[in-house]
């Protein structure tokens, strides 16, 4: 049974409203009953927000919405190194992911091609790939910081390392499983190896390669937040950590929402490319 899109969207919206309403109501009622009174000395220490006795630090959806509006009205301002708009932070993260992911694609796709074409090379490299692939990309961070000596480039390197594996393995698999009969067609036509690679193997393996790229960009977007929390400076990950230090939970909820939306967009973008290179028997 095909469910009409409007009906499922309506239900999704209803679920969202229900969830936000429950959230809002729960916090309002706990605020009304009056929370614990904060110790005066502690209040002086942590600042005005926590000092307002009964107010819980957990923000209500209405407060988050107001803050979101405030952030989105001017997302690209730069007022010194520690005060930049959320758009600027996301742009930094996207740039790092773009560069790291792009470099990884430049290495992984040709190398995967070679592995897929040569079972010997695949067997030789396999132990290295199998050992390095399960390593958390953040484990590379100290080595990167020590050798590169630049925190921003180090996080690009971490993105590079984490995006390389799915692309490498998928390309190798896609190239290695190109139909024998298509290769035979190319051989009987005396198509050179470059022409065979470009016109036969690459389009045949493209859907598999794109699946690898899609997995990679997803992982890269997951890892960039953690990497930026670690190295600091700029980026949405750093911004999240900064707002945690400010105990500004509304900003963190907004960051989660933004990270999710950008991740969705990245996936859709590659999904669209995958659709363009897909073929059907």
């Amino acid at each position: 049974m095909l469910i009409p899109f409007w009906r499922s969207s309506l239900l999704s919206l209803a679920l969202l409203i229900l969830f936000l309403g429950a959230w809002e109501l729960a916090l309002r009622s706990s605020a009304a009953t009056g929370g614990s009174v904060v110790d005066a000395e502690y209040a002086a220490l942590v600042g005005a927000a926590a000092a307002q006795g009964g107010q819980t630090p957990m923000p209500m959806p209405s407060e988050i919405a107001a803050r979101l509006w405030q952030l989105l009205r001017d997302p690209f301002y730069v007022r010194g190194t520690n005060d930049q708009g959320i758009g600027v932070q996301i742009a930094y993260s996207l740039a790092r992911v773009g560069i790291g992911f792009g470099l990884a694609a430049l290495v992984a796709i040709p190398l995967g091609f070679a592995i897929g074409m040569s079972p010997l090379l695949g067997a030789v490299l396999n132990p290295f790939i199998q050992v390095l692939r399960p390593v958390s990309p953040l484990a590379w961070m100290p080595l990167a910081l020590y050798t590169i000596k630049d925190s921003s480039i180090s996080s690009v390197f971490v993105i590079f390392i984490c995006s390389i594996w799915p692309m490498l393995l998928n390309t190798a698999f896609g190239v290695g499983s190109v139909r024998r009969e298509w290769l035979n067609v190319a051989r009987t036509l005396e198509a050179g190896s470059l022409k065979t690679a470009w016109r036969v193997i690459l389009p045949a393996a493209a859907p598999t390669i794109l699946t690898g790229m899609r997995i990679s960009i997803g992982i890269a977007w997951l890892v960039i937040v953690a990497a930026e929390m670690l190295v600091g400076g700029t980026g949405i990950g750093y911004w999240v950590w900064n707002q945690w230090n400010n105990l500004s939970l509304a900003d963190i909820v907004i960051a989660i929402l933004m990270i999710g939306l950008v991740g969705l967009l990245l996936d859709r973008l590659l999904g669209w490319v995958a659709g363009a290179v897909a073929w059907q028997e």
Binding site: E181, W182, V185, V200, P203
Partner: peptide, 14 residues
């Protein structure tokens, strides 16, 4: 020596 294959062996993306 051109070959006509048993399966058509056409490239499905072309």
């Amino acid at each position: 020596r051109a070959v006509i294959f048993q399966g058509h062996a056409l490239m499905p993306w072309m």
